[in-house]
Design a protein around this nucleic acid. Structure first.
Lengths: 192, 192
DNA sequence: ACGTCATTAGGACAATTGTCCAAATCATGC
DNA sequence: GCATGATTTGGACAATTGTCCTAATGACGT
C-alpha cells in the first residue's frame, strides 16, 4: 500500500512539475521536496530520470484514454463529443495561459532534447487524433475524417500556443466559438 | 571589428542552439565549443545567461522585422504577402519538424521557466500579429483584421506543433493549402 | 620599440545535477 | 519478541552548471 502510494506520488508530482516547469528544468530535488521524501529514495523506484518520464507519459496516456472514453459514454452524439474536446481549451484556460498545452509543450521539449521518449509523448497526440477521427467517421465523414481530426487538433494547439504567449482569454473563447462553427459547417455539408 | 565579430558570433550561435536544443538545456560550454572560444570569454560581453537570451531575442525581433519589411517591398499585393507568411511553414518544414517553431517553442519554454524575458519573447509574435493585421486592413477588413491576424498566426502555430510531433510533411502542405483557401474565401467575402 | 587599452584564455568558485550505495527503519509473518 | 524483507534515509560521487577573476595576449597609436 505505502509502496504503491509513494511510487504513484512520485509520478503524479513529477507529471505536474514537468508540466509547469518543463522536464529538463525539473530536478529530482524539486520532486522530492514537493512530496516530502529524501532524494535517494527515487532510486528504489526509478533508476533514471528517463524512467520517471516514461512513467509520466504512461500516466498521461492512461488518463487521456480514460477522458476520451468518458466523453464517449457521456455524450451520445459525436458532435457533442468533439465539442467536449474543443472546450478543453476553456476548461483549462488558466493553466494553458500559464504553461501551455501539456501535450504540445512536452512534445516540443522532447523534440529539442532529441529524447528517446519523444515518439511515446507524441503518441498522446495520436490518441486524440484517432479518437477525433472516429467521431468524424461516426458523423459520416469517411473520406475526410483523418484530415479533419488533425485539423481540429492543430487548431486547438495553435490556440493554446498563442494563449500562452499573449495570456488572452477572450482570444481563446473567440477561437473556440470559431472551431465550433467550423464543426457545424462540416456537419451541415455532410447532410447535403 | 574583432570585438563586434565575437559578440555577434556568440549571439548568432546562441540563437541557433537555443532553437535546436532549448534555452535551459544549452550551456555556456555548448556555445563556447561551437564558436571555439574559451568559456570565460563570455563574461567580457555578457554578465549572465539571461543577457545572452536578451540579445538573442533582440536579434530575432530585428530579423523578423527585416523579413516582414522585405515581404512588403517585394510583394505589392497584401494577399501575396500573407501567403508568403503562410508558406514559411513549407520553406522551414525541415527545422520545424525537427525543432518546432522558433517563436512558439521559445515562448512556451520561457512561460514554464517564468522567465523575466517571457514577454519580450512574446513580442516576436506581436510583430507577426500587427503585420498580419496591417495586411488584412489593406485588404479592406477593418473590423476583423485583428481577429483574422491572430487566427492565421494561431493556425500556423498549430500546424508547426503537430508537424513536430508527427514529422508529417504532407500534413504541413495540406494545411498550408487550407489556410490559403481560407484566406481567399475571406478576400472573396470582402468584395461582396 | 613602447605603452596602452581592448580582448582572450584558463581556471577557481560554490552550487546543483543525476546517479548510486550502505545503513537505518519499518512492516509483517511466525 | 524475533527474523526477514520491503522501504526509506542521508549522504557520497563525479560531472556540470553559471558566475567571476586574474593573468596573458592582442592590436594599435605614438
Amino acid at each position: 500500500m505505502a509502496a504503491v502510494s509513494t511510487r504513484e506520488q512520485i509520478v503524479e508530482i513529477a507529471d505536474d512539475l514537468f508540466y509547469r516547469g518543463g522536464f529538463e528544468a525539473t530536478s529530482f530535488a524539486d520532486i522530492a521536496a514537493d512530496i516530502g521524501i529524501s532524494r535517494g529514495n527515487f532510486y528504489y523506484y526509478f533508476k533514471t530520470k528517463d524512467e520517471i518520464l516514461d512513467a509520466v507519459i504512461d500516466r498521461r496516456l492512461q488518463r487521456t484514454s480514460a477522458m476520451l472514453d468518458g466523453w464517449e459514454s457521456q455524450a451520445p452524439e459525436p458532435r457533442e463529443r468533439i465539442v467536449a474536446f474543443i472546450e478543453l481549451l476553456i476548461a483549462n484556460r488558466a493553466p494553458i495561459m500559464a504553461y501551455g498545452c501539456p501535450v504540445g509543450t512536452l512534445c516540443a521539449e522532447l523534440a529539442k532534447l532529441d529524447h528517446v521518449h519523444r515518439e511515446r509523448a507524441a503518441e498522446i497526440f495520436g490518441l486524440f487524433a484517432r479518437w477525433l477521427e472516429k467521431q468524424f467517421r461516426a458523423l459520416g465523414a469517411d473520406e475526410t475524417a483523418r484530415e479533419w481530426a488533425l485539423h481540429v487538433l492543430a487548431w486547438s494547439q495553435g490556440v493554446a500556443s498563442l494563449a500562452t504567449a499573449f495570456k488572452d482569454e477572450a482570444f481563446i473563447r473567440r477561437e473556440v466559438a470559431d472551431i465550433t462553427c467550423w464543426l457545424d459547417d462540416r456537419i451541415v455539408s455532410l447532410s447535403q
